[in-house]
């Protein structure tokens, strides 16, 4: 029972990180209208950016977060210009294949420059553990939760309450109509895409602190988890995607209580498949028709 409760705490913390990845994913897909397979690599770059900051500048979490955000923003710009910018009018599989290619390119370059092996992430948060009754919550988990909640709230405010948010949502709903509103659609899509990537980069930092390791190939399964969480949330809805991430984190951590840690991914993707069989549209219920 105690073990189970603590696995729930672990599941929530890890799920919060997946939620941040998934929020980033749904922003990218929402604003570009195209599926991406580069998200894992964006996450990885975010992790490495903060790794080098911690190594060469010092153990400062805020600095790490900023570095991850900027590095993955820049990678996001690269991906935007290579995979999306010229393909909005083209059939959507063109840019999809392009993102697969870009993801392989980035991953292999990362293996060359960062090395192929696992690296230990510096332990930048105190190893403190708080006990509440039988529950054990580490300081790291609290920091992770706060970071995710703060970032998600900033994003939600930005999207729901500013002119910029209206532009972003207009572009994601109907690009032609957005042009007719005088919105610079390409610039807006680029920035939206980069915001999504920046959040994913920060999630990369958090997950590598959480596991205390990082690796050039880490993006493979993490990208798939971001994608799955987002699919659970109906792909473009940030709130439901976050819920999807949280659910996957929980299922994984509860699943390994009845088996072993190496079965983690089986539970995650098994859950995805089960949900999609029962409810193909994911958690979200569609409001209003989506035009083109």
């Amino acid at each position: 029972m105690e073990y189970l409760l603590n696995q729930i705490v672990n599941g929530i913390s890890q799920g919060a990180i997946y939620a941040l990845m998934a929020i980033g994913y749904s922003v990218v897909v929402g604003v570009t209208g195209l599926i991406t397979f580069t998200h894992g690599e964006v996450i990885m770059i975010g992790a490495f950016a903060s790794f080098y900051i911690f190594q060469y500048i010092g153990n400062n979490l805020i600095l790490g977060i900023i570095a991850s955000f900027i590095a993955s923003w820049i990678l996001g710009m690269f991906i935007y210009y290579v995979c999306y910018d010229r393909f909005f009018e083209a059939p959507s599989h063109i840019s999809l294949i392009c993102t697969i290619g870009a993801s392989m390119l980035i991953r292999n370059l990362a293996q060359i420059y960062f090395g192929p092996n696992q690296k230990p992430m510096l332990n930048i948060i105190d190893n403190k553990v708080y006990r509440i009754g039988v529950l054990q919550v580490s300081l790291m988990q609290i920091v992770i939760l706060i970071t995710v909640v703060v970032l998600a709230s900033i994003l939600a405010f930005f999207i729901n309450n500013t002119r910029w948010g209206i532009m972003l949502r207009a572009v994601s709903q109907d690009k032609k109509a957005a042009y007719l509103m005088g919105i610079n659609v390409r610039k807006t899509a680029m920035i939206g895409n980069c915001i999504g990537c920046g959040l994913a980069g920060i999630a990369g930092l958090l997950i590598s602190i959480y596991y205390q390791t990082l690796q050039a190939t880490m993006g493979g399964s993490l990208g798939m988890k971001a994608f799955s969480s987002s699919v659970l949330g109906g792909l473009t809805d940030t709130r439901y995607s976050a819920l999807g991430g949280l659910a996957i984190g929980l299922i994984e951590n509860l699943g390994i209580t009845i088996s072993t840690a190496s079965f983690r991914d089986i539970f995650a993707f098994g859950f995805l498949i089960t949900v999609l069989i029962i409810r193909p549209e994911g958690f979200a219920s569609r409001k209003g028709a989506k035009s083109q």
């Binding site: 949502r169 007719l180 409001k287």
Partner: peptide, 27 residues
């Protein structure tokens, strides 16, 4: 130059108010 397109093309998930605000971006 304002162009009200064929088939309306309002933004379905923006509120009426937000749709109107989207219009002001053009000026």
């Amino acid at each position: 130059i304002c162009h009200v397109p064929e088939g309306r093309r309002i933004f379905p998930s923006l509120t009426v108010y937000e749709n109107l605000m989207a219009g002001t971006i053009g000026n």
